[in-house]
């Protein structure tokens, strides 16, 4: 498990290192937007991976979708 976490962190760091030169070269107008969305996505992915490794993942969206459909359509799924 510890190894997996280390691997995940390394992957995230490599990603940032690969992208950063490109990210810093964007024109001023969009820079903040791109940086925020980039790190937001990365953080989501990273947290998800971390939770999966720790086996503490939240309820899967498929289950939520199933429940919602049940609620709306009332089909016996």
């Amino acid at each position: 498990m510890a190894l997996n976490i280390i691997l995940l962190v390394i992957i995230a760091i490599i990603m940032v290192l690969l992208d950063l030169p490109g990210l810093l070269k964007i024109e001023k107008k969009n820079k903040i937007k791109v940086l925020i969305s980039y790190f937001l996505l990365l953080l989501t992915g990273f947290t998800l991976g971390l939770l999966l490794i720790l086996e503490r993942e939240p309820v899967s969206p498929t289950v939520i979708i199933e429940r919602m459909l049940n609620l709306i359509l009332g089909i016996g799924l």
Partner: peptide, 27 residues
């Protein structure tokens, strides 16, 4: 949606998210 003119910077984090989702969606 964000009004950017290049998506390429977002590729890696989104792919990471997709992998995470793939593992998360089903037990």
């Amino acid at each position: 949606l964000l009004g950017l003119n290049d998506y390429k910077h977002l590729v890696l984090p989104l792919v990471l998210l997709a992998v995470g989702l793939a593992m998360w969606l089903y037990e």
